[in-house]
Simulated scan of single mutants.
Amino acid sequence: MPPSPWHILGCGAMGRLYAAQLSRAGIHVVLLPRQAPTAKLLDIEITGLSHSRHTLPWEPPGATGPIHQLLVFTKAYDVAPALAGIGHRLGANSRVILMANGMGYAQQLHPRLPTLRPAFGTSTQGAHRGSGAQVQHAGHGATRLGMPGVPKAPDWFAPLEQALPDCRWESDINSALWRKLAINCAINPLTALHHCLNGELAARPALAQQVRALCAEISTVGAAAGQQAALAGLQEQVFAVIHATAGNRSSMLQDLSSGRRTEVSYINGFLVQQARQHGIAAPLNQALLQAITAKEAAIT
């Protein structure tokens, strides 16, 4: 019996990039686009740092039949409603990996899908949509997957580890999620507000100073939340990411530029919630949350 396909929910740039990488490795991929395409198959053309073309099957939102393996690349605010929409296709043994930015969205899942026990992932790969079927592969990076309470990689992880570049199992996925959250808190909103590439946060002294101040505040909140070890050396990590992705446009900048809602509520907003929970002030993150929210209100 052939292995079950990996379904991909969320067919934006990152979902399509991962679909192409899995397909290139010989893994059967089925896309779950929000709106049904006009063609029977969906074309993907990867350009930029890697090049490949793929023609992949897709299923409409109302399709039936079980989904055994699922990667979710929706925006954080769409995770719960999108999964609820296909909840009839998910069983107790379905493998679901949530790859959204930020934190806090998993708690919104439980009332809708109380038996779901998802895995979580982070990615430092970069991609953005081009014209037509094109996806620009804009940044090499790592993929880290894991499940709370599962320190060793399960058998189903092996094909993903072989297919995806620099893909590893995280024994403590919560720490990895916190590290990614902290880096996003320090980079994404500043690039969105100043409409600049990541590299400008280091090249412009005033912005670099804001990054350093943000890192200090984020580290304080993280320590109160029990994540001091996860955020050790945060400032160095943040500037390393800024230099490594100097030519990239953050997802938050891309969203604002395209008139879309951002994930700031699940990034800086989550950090502000954690600060309040532990009785700590986080004025810098609060100010960024308010500024991005105001920009969203003006364009949406």
Score class of each variant (00 low, 15 high):
200 E>K: 14
246 A>K: 11
157 F>C: 10
55 T>C: 15
109 L>Q: 10
133 A>T: 08
40 K>T: 12
229 A>C: 06
238 V>Q: 05
180 K>Y: 13
81 P>L: 13
53 R>C: 02
190 L>G: 05
273 Q>N: 08
78 D>T: 00
22 L>C: 02
61 P>Q: 04
2 P>M: 11
7 H>C: 01
192 A>T: 07
277 Q>I: 02
103 M>H: 03
274 Q>N: 11
19 A>N: 01
292 I>C: 03
259 G>E: 09
149 G>I: 06
16 R>V: 01
13 A>P: 02
59 E>G: 03
169 W>A: 11
112 R>M: 15
113 L>S: 06
267 I>K: 00
178 W>M: 14
239 F>D: 06
288 L>R: 08
64 T>L: 06
50 S>N: 04
6 W>A: 07
292 I>L: 06
249 R>M: 04
257 S>E: 14
134 Q>P: 01
211 V>L: 07
278 H>F: 13
223 A>K: 10
213 A>S: 12
239 F>R: 04
47 T>F: 05
233 G>I: 07
29 V>E: 00
164 L>M: 04
44 I>K: 01
203 A>R: 12
123 S>L: 07
265 S>I: 05
115 T>I: 10
293 T>N: 09
207 L>Y: 12
92 A>D: 13
64 T>H: 10
195 H>I: 09
272 V>K: 04
108 Q>Y: 06
158 A>N: 11
9 L>H: 00
103 M>V: 08
16 R>G: 01
70 L>C: 00
4 S>Y: 12
61 P>M: 03
154 P>S: 10
2 P>R: 13
94 S>L: 07
293 T>L: 08
38 T>R: 10
260 R>S: 03
154 P>R: 11
112 R>P: 10
63 A>F: 07
54 H>Q: 07
161 E>S: 15
44 I>N: 03
125 Q>T: 06
5 P>F: 07
99 M>C: 03
178 W>N: 05
119 A>L: 11
266 Y>P: 13
267 I>F: 02
104 G>R: 05
144 R>C: 09
274 Q>K: 15
191 T>D: 07
277 Q>V: 05
82 A>Y: 00
281 A>N: 12
82 A>V: 00
2 P>L: 12
134 Q>A: 13
67 I>R: 01
289 L>M: 11
300 T>M: 08
10 G>F: 00
153 A>F: 14
171 S>W: 06
178 W>C: 04
193 L>T: 10
159 P>H: 11
112 R>T: 13
95 R>F: 05
150 V>T: 14
131 S>R: 13
84 A>K: 12
197 L>Q: 09
80 A>Q: 02
178 W>L: 01
242 I>Q: 05
44 I>A: 04
103 M>Q: 02
39 A>K: 14
221 V>I: 14
65 G>W: 07
207 L>N: 08
45 E>V: 05
220 T>P: 08
